[in-house]
Amino acid sequence: THFTSQQLQELEATFQRNHYPDMSTREEIAVWTNLTEARVRVWFKNRRAKWR
């Protein structure tokens, strides 16, 4: 999946605040970024792996 810079900005900003967002937070992010909750969940999983 290719993310727009706007989507990445929103995802990264949320990641800085919370590395493990809950389901409702992921659903909110999905609405803001026009992505599915599953895409958001996978992005956070991959981002945490990169962060370690």
Rank of each mutant, 00 (worst) to 15 (best):
Q7H: 05
F44M: 04
R17P: 01
D22L: 04
F3G: 00
R52Y: 15
T14S: 15
S24P: 11
F15W: 07
T36A: 06
E12C: 06
V31L: 14
Y20A: 03
W32E: 10
R52E: 10
L35Y: 01
Q9I: 11
L11R: 00
E37G: 03
Q9F: 12
A38W: 12
K50S: 08
Q16N: 08
Y20P: 01
W51T: 06
R47I: 03
R47E: 04
K50T: 09
F15G: 04
E27L: 15
A30P: 01
W51V: 06
T36D: 08
W43D: 00
T1G: 13
P21Q: 02
T4M: 04
L11K: 01
S24G: 07
Q9N: 11
N18E: 06
K45E: 07
E27H: 13
V31N: 12
D22A: 08
T25H: 08
Q6L: 10
Q9V: 11
T14R: 14
K50R: 14
T33I: 12
W32Y: 14
F44G: 00
E12G: 01
E12W: 05
S5P: 14
R52H: 13
R41N: 07
R26E: 01
R39H: 11
F15T: 03
A38R: 13
W43C: 02
Q7E: 04
Y20T: 05
W32N: 15
I29Y: 03
T25S: 08
R39L: 14
T36W: 03
A49Q: 09
W32F: 12
T36K: 04
W51K: 06
M23N: 06
L35R: 03
E12L: 03
Q7I: 08
Y20W: 12
A38E: 13
E28Q: 15
K50F: 09
E27Q: 13
A49Y: 08
Y20Q: 03
W32I: 15
F3I: 10
R41S: 08
K50E: 15
E10F: 15
E28C: 10
N46C: 12
N18C: 11
E10K: 15
E12I: 04
E37T: 04
T33Q: 07
Q6E: 10
R41D: 07
H2K: 13
E28N: 09
E27W: 09
L35P: 00
S24Y: 08
V40M: 00
T1V: 11
M23F: 14
F44Q: 00
A30V: 02
V31F: 13
A49V: 08
M23T: 09
A13E: 11
F3M: 09
R47M: 05
R39A: 15
E28V: 09
T1P: 12
E10R: 15
H2W: 12
E27G: 06
L8F: 05
R26F: 07
T4W: 05
T36C: 06
R41Q: 06
Q7K: 05
K50N: 08
H2P: 11
K50G: 07
R52V: 10
R26Y: 08
V40D: 00
R47G: 02
Q6R: 11
V42L: 12
T4S: 09
T4I: 03
T25Q: 15
R52I: 11
W32L: 15
Y20V: 04
R39T: 13
Q16G: 07
Q16T: 08
I29D: 01
T25A: 11
A38Y: 13
F3C: 05
S24C: 09
R17C: 11
L8M: 07
W43N: 00
W43I: 00
I29C: 04
R52F: 14
Q16I: 08
R39N: 11
Y20C: 08
L11H: 01
T14M: 15
L35G: 04
Q7L: 06
R52P: 06
A38T: 10
Q9H: 14
K45L: 08
D22C: 04
A13T: 09
N18M: 08
N46Q: 13
E28W: 12
A30K: 02
S5A: 12
Q9G: 07
E28L: 14
L11C: 04
R17F: 09
R41E: 07
W51L: 09
W43V: 01
V31A: 14
P21C: 06
W43L: 00
R41L: 07
L11G: 00
Q7A: 06
H2S: 14
N18H: 06
P21Y: 02
L8H: 07
R41V: 04
E28G: 07
R39Y: 09
S24Q: 14
S24N: 13
